[in-house]
Design a protein around this nucleic acid. Structure first.
Lengths: 154, 154
DNA sequence: CCTCCTGGGTTCGTAAAGCGAACCTTGCTC
DNA sequence: GAGCAAGGTTCGCTTTACGAACCCAGGAGG
């Protein structure tokens, strides 16, 4: 029972999923990180229904994860594109985490997309570290500590 | 157009989301990482409908993320509990990433759950690093490099 | 023995979300 | 002024989520 004694209703995992946990949301953000910004390109790359995509984009804009910016291509009408805000950029590790898991457990041959450090070209990966500088090798080395509104102690 | 030129259908992000992207799946895993293993506890903590929970658990077991293990409590009937497999444990960074984002962007006062290094008690966080040992400060320092089946070059 | 209780489900009917196809609108080119 | 394309909206259908009710096994208690 010990580990159940904190208030799930304000859990950050749940909160984040409430914002980006719907179908397509994270895939839209994947595209955003790949530099895709226009509705039609998103729609083509994702294969999502337009209505759903419209709705997801609106939600992400509303949440401050994307922003809608006007742009003007040569000899074309004024349109707008969707770009990541800093708040959206902060979701990068989440996507990397999902990608790394898929690369390890789903890839049939080789990972379809590599991430490399722009400065040195070396492959990039996510790591857990503590503030004392130790690398944390796995989940078992991490202790979750509830902070808010503990169940009234006996 | 450059960044759109690889095969999304085998994207690891999409693949991972296909496995754990449904509603409740990641929250079930959150509970698993907190040590919750029994159906009734999961149901109580999550507030998910039983039918959905049953279905998610079955999917996660099928996918090799959880395993169903028999156990026997004192003076009770033989039941089974759900435990993370190594494949499931590998989803830890994903949950940490979601949590960190929520802690930063949704928390009203203080993060409801802290993670600390079991050995030294220091707070733990996710970091991007390259194999050359550099810390990668943000998404902009990462270059995505498609590897599979590029569009036939002109 | 019969009933209650509890964990772990299944079965329902309804409400919401996702879906593809069709349609609309704006403003460009021809 | 016809055609086209981006970026949507609308529509009807299918799938999924939902909560409430029910079921089943087995130990406890009378």
């Amino acid at each position: 029972m010990t580990d159940a004694s904190w208030d799930r209703s304000r859990c950050s995992v749940a909160g984040t999923l409430a914002v980006v946990g719907e179908k397509w949301s994270l895939l839209v953000l994947r595209e955003a990180f790949l530099g895709v910004r226009r509705f039609a390109d998103l729609q083509r790359n994702l294969g999502a229904p337009k209505a759903v995509l419209t709705d997801r984009l609106a939600t992400l804009v509303e949440q401050g994860i994307l922003r809608r910016e006007p742009y003007q291509a040569d000899g074309e009408r004024r349109r707008h594109e969707y770009r990541l805000t800093p708040k959206g950029v902060d979701l990068h590790p989440t996507l990397v985490a999902l990608m790394q898991w898929g690369d390890k457990h789903l890839a049939e041959d080789v990972a379809p997309l590599a991430l490399e450090h722009r400065d040195c070209g070396a492959p990039v990966r996510l790591e857990l570290r503590c503030d004392a500088g130790h690398q944390v090798s796995g989940a078992r080395e991490v202790r979750p500590v509830p902070r808010a509104i503990p169940v009234s102690p006996g």
